[in-house]
Design a protein around this nucleic acid. Structure first.
Lengths: 348, 348
DNA sequence: CTGAAAGCGCTAACAT
DNA sequence: ATGTTAGCGCTTTCAG
């Protein structure tokens, strides 16, 4: 006795059942249901009727095995609770909705080993494409991506060595550009507030670029504050309180993400600090939900929806390209940074 | 010539290839890779070696077809951008991580037809379980859920007629309890701010329960304000500005979600309204990211992680139960509502 | 402990 | 316009 589905529910309906009910061959039913080839209207109607009344649901497993076609696109991201990634998925969905392809999401929890396992699992379903966040992966993961034989796109970041195609922004540049803006606007004692996690490669790169940008202007980071755990208003507030207590002389705070910056902003407003005169703030990402804060936070749009769209386009074009598409994060001045002293109003 | 994967990449490696390389039968390879049955250590080692050097990735499609076992759990939710659902997914993941099961997410965009299609698509992959948000579905969707022959759990909401098992809270009660709290604390002119979308059934139910709760206290809703589109600080702020302009006499604002309430709170603080004295505010959901706001918003914890966990437990128990598990949302007083006038401090 | 045979439900390719 | 045949890559079952 073969096992059916878990706990041997009723045996699944097959094409055979529909074919018998409609008085035609399995092949005809298959054609009708997939809308392939020519079938007479009369037969077509009979088949649909039979399928509907029986409640037939096709078995894509068998179909996929027979046709060697799987309309799934594997998407591997670190987490869903970081608002960044749902936005990328949104962009992917926008594009794939116009195609027969469907995204399937797996999460790595910012852990390379988990990521490797998830990629392995997903590839074992033979998807039509693979989208992975970031450029840092274990060697086996990279090997799998290289040998998958399907379009593979790494997203979010272009600072590194992509396995194949790649769509993202340069976080190093993003950090550097922000440093330049801050320096140009006359701030001099600058603090950084961000995650202590080395696994957040993109935030690390922004910090690196940020330091470089400061150095260009003859500045250096006056102080930093790192947290573990999740970003959020509470985290931003606590870090800010801590940092400003230790270094009340700081005149600018650069945050790894807008969520933390928002918490910091609220703290500063509560302490009646004069923004952006006495102290400026900037974040990263440009989260739409934050639009109603008392002040718009200076930030840089991370282009995540656009990244998702471009990646999905590469996948649906079905080319095994190794194109690198670098998007440009837009600097959004907001209200928490002083106007530029010189004439130019935006970065290079 | 049979098509291989898209664009005929290299032919995929099969068990055969590994078997040949290791000098054993396909069956032995299969046993080693699945860790089933007894295989000598020597053979085992040889097989692993061969699989690793070839870079073999098993074909789960073929495996699933042969074994009639698919370790996937289909999860259908309206959207990923509403922070509620990632939290549910988190709970699901917590539990499934301890099992061989993997969640696969599909989104319905709050549209019953899309939901129906997504359920159909997912069921056609013969998953081991199905979790669907909400109790409102098209008739065909309900039929599919009923006949799927796998454990099915509807989540979030218990006010309605579940197809099978169900884990959630009563949003009607949640609304009613909040109304009671508000009334008990002496507020009398109460406004509601929420989505105009009838597709947001749970918000509608909270509103319904809220009105009932007010009626119990001899009150009725003084005014409402509805929005289209996404919740967020901007939306909350705009609605609040609008409502308070029309009705400056209101002394309480009940929001459909904490995100909007936060925007409203910031607006009220900006206008120097005295909270919770002159005006009180309450939301729904208890979003952790909001913890660092100037005041903690009165809210009700929607238990979404817990809901995800319970649902996943039902699925992994693999019982086709029709159990209804009602969780109790916790009222969180916060700072934006006056203390109770009478002695009791919490709802029934 | 290992192998050989059969077949999962479907679709490509070739009839008719 | 419809039917027939073979087989996708794996696992189940049964034999050694």
């Amino acid at each position: 006795m073969r096992g059916r589905n878990p706990f041997d529910g009723k045996p699944q309906l097959t094409l055979r059942d529909v074919a018998d009910a409609a008085g035609v061959s399995e092949m005809t039913v298959s054609r009708v249901l997939r809308n392939r080839g020519d079938v007479s209207d009369r037969t077509r109607a009979r088949v649909f009727e039979a399928a509907r009344t029986l409640g037939y649901v096709p078995n894509k497993i068998a179909g996929a095995l027979a046709s060697n076609r799987v309309n799934l696109v594997a998407v591997v991201i670190p987490s869903l609770s970081n608002m960044v990634f749902p936005d990328v998925l949104g962009g992917i969905g926008d594009i794939l909705d116009e195609t027969p392809l469907q995204p399937v999401v797996g999460t790595s929890k910012y852990d390379p080993e988990t990521e490797e396992k998830v990629i392995y699992e997903m590839l074992s379903w033979r998807p039509s494409g693979l989208i992975v966040a970031g450029l840092e992966h274990s060697d086996p993961a990279r090997a799998m991506m290289r040998n998958a034989g399907i379009p593979v796109v790494e997203v979010m970041d272009v600072d590194g060595d992509p396995v194949a195609a790649c769509v993202g922004i340069s976080h190093i540049k993003a950090g550097r550009d922000m440093a330049r803006e801050i320096a140009r606007r006359g701030y001099r004692k600058i603090g950084y507030l961000g995650s202590s996690s080395l696994a957040d490669h993109r935030a690390q790169k922004r910090l690196q670029g940020f330091k470089e940008g400061l150095a260009e202007a003859g500045l250096e980071l006056a102080e930093s504050c790192f947290y573990e755990g999740m970003s959020g208003f509470g985290t931003g507030r606590a870090m800010t309180a801590d940092l400003l207590t230790r270094r009340p002389d700081l005149d600018f705070l650069y945050y790894n993400t807008d969520m933390n910056a928002a918490g910091g902003l609220l703290y500063c407003l509560e302490k009646d600090l004069s923004i952006p005169g006495d102290i400026g703030l900037a974040g990263f990402n440009s989260f739409e939900v934050l639009d109603g804060l008392p002040m718009r936070i200076a930030t840089m749009d991370s282009q995540r929806t656009q990244i998702g769209r471009k990646a999905a386009e590469l996948i649906s074009a079905n080319a095994l390209s190794d194109e690198v598409i670098e998007l440009n994060p837009a600097f959004l001045e907001g209200d928490t940074i002083r106007p530029a002293l010189d004439s130019a109003s935006s970065s290079s």
